[in-house]
Write a protein that binds this DNA or RNA. Structure first.
Lengths: 229, 229
DNA sequence: CGAGTCCTTGACCATAATCAAGATATGTGG
DNA sequence: CCACATATCTTGATTATGGTCAAGGACTCG
């Protein structure tokens, strides 16, 4: 899942790391419009990145899982312009914004890892945007199911039979895909009737991965490991 | 527009740069599914990043303007998973993918610039995704008009009276916002009737920036310069 | 057992897609 | 200079996907 580290990198990370933080499910990790002196790596738990319009309409930009880097924007720009919310209890590895400079100067390999994360986030957003912009409701949901399956698989979170224990609700799916809750529900039911997925609160089962891929016209994204620099 | 460079940085960039490339309007700069040994900085011209489904449905992910970095994904992953198309003739500064490693090892300041670009791209995609997911057609177009105005302003491309000479057509706007061409046109006309914008092929005029911002509920994005590390 | 959170369903409505022409440049070869 | 071709923009009629409204049901947890 991760590439191997050199001795000095490990030392540096240990010093760079300024602590661990635990947040409860439902809590806000980073709030849009504020400035945070920290950035985080997710050690455990599920969350999501989100942006909300003044009148409450909300988009979930991406889901956050262990291994993800969160808060890079607040480290580079004045303010966060999205929020990060915890879905479950989460454990975060805390880094100081002010240490980023030293990381770039002294550990180019780790700096490279940071860009790698940023580029991966962009790639995910690209596909997501294609989905919301041009796929139908059923295609969007199929796409998201396969996406979540791939992410969960990379973290060994998929139980036999394609079962993913996840805190994601249909409300989150709706906000992630730009659909209404009602229409999301009806579409999920239709996919269930076609034996593609099944949904229970807290328990998502992918019954026919290939069928979902075909429906979504979702290219098998080659899941590359972090390249060694 | 750019931060100042140190002498050694300038030397390095000069060596890192492996040439200039010119492409004609309408040409493909980078193609989805291929691997490129180069990445580019845009010196002049307009282009866009794009993803297309098998049946031809297309999303424009972002517009590419001078100063932008393109092809970072092909430098970090095996393949591009989006295309970059030239709208006008473009001049690109060419870098070798294989030199990225040296850049990170020897010029942390420039490495930092690369992350900054990646993070900015992500921020733009975030707002774009909110737009396509949750804004109405009129709001989306208002948002895009303000977005383009801000980008053009940063590059001194706005003529007096809010006129932007741009190769973007209503077809591109439709694909960028997840709308049909017909509906895009009708909505643009309605915004024109409200004195917010006016549209002529090759010539976009922003008549009421504040009105558009209010309609789009678009936060004034603080346009920060590249931070010095 | 009651409160809260999700999920589910049906009826009705609206935004935006599709279809089908047609109008307006702009440029090209004869 | 004109006929023609191509790009883009425009408009109206019709359709459909998905939104909104309004309930109700199921499950969990204290």
């Amino acid at each position: 899942m991760f590439r191997s580290f050199s001795r000095t990198e490990l030392d540096f990370v240990t010093r760079f790391k300024s602590g661990e933080m635990k947040v409860e499910g439902g809590a806000t990790v980073l709030m849009s419009g504020t400035r945070s002196p920290h950035l985080f790596t997710v050690l455990s738990g599920w969350g999501y990145r989100e942006k909300t319009l003044e009148d409450g309409r909300r988009s979930i930009l991406n889901f956050v899982l262990p291994g993800d880097l969160v808060g890079l924007q607040s480290a580079l720009f004045c303010e966060m312009n999205h929020s990060v919310e915890a879905l479950t209890d989460m454990t975060l590895c805390v880094f100081q914004r002010s240490d980023i400079e030293a990381l770039f100067r002294r550990e180019p390999g780790l700096a490279f890892t940071v860009v790698w994360h940023a580029a991966r986030a962009e790639r995910i957003l690209d596909e997501h945007l294609l989905s919301v912009g041009r796929r139908s409701a059923a295609e969007r949901i199929a796409y998201l199911m396969v996406f979540l399956l791939e992410r969960a698989r990379g973290l060994d979170l998929v139980e036999p039979g394609g079962v993913i224990a996840t805190p994601i609700t249909q409300g989150h799916v709706a906000d992630a895909l730009g659909l209404s809750l009602v229409h999301t529900n009806k579409t999920v039911k239709r996919l269930a009737a076609r034996q593609l997925v099944s949904w229970k609160p807290g328990r998502l089962t992918i019954r026919d991965e290939d069928g979902l891929r075909v429906l979504a016209a979702y290219d098998r994204g080659r899941t590359e490991a972090l390249p060694l620099i």
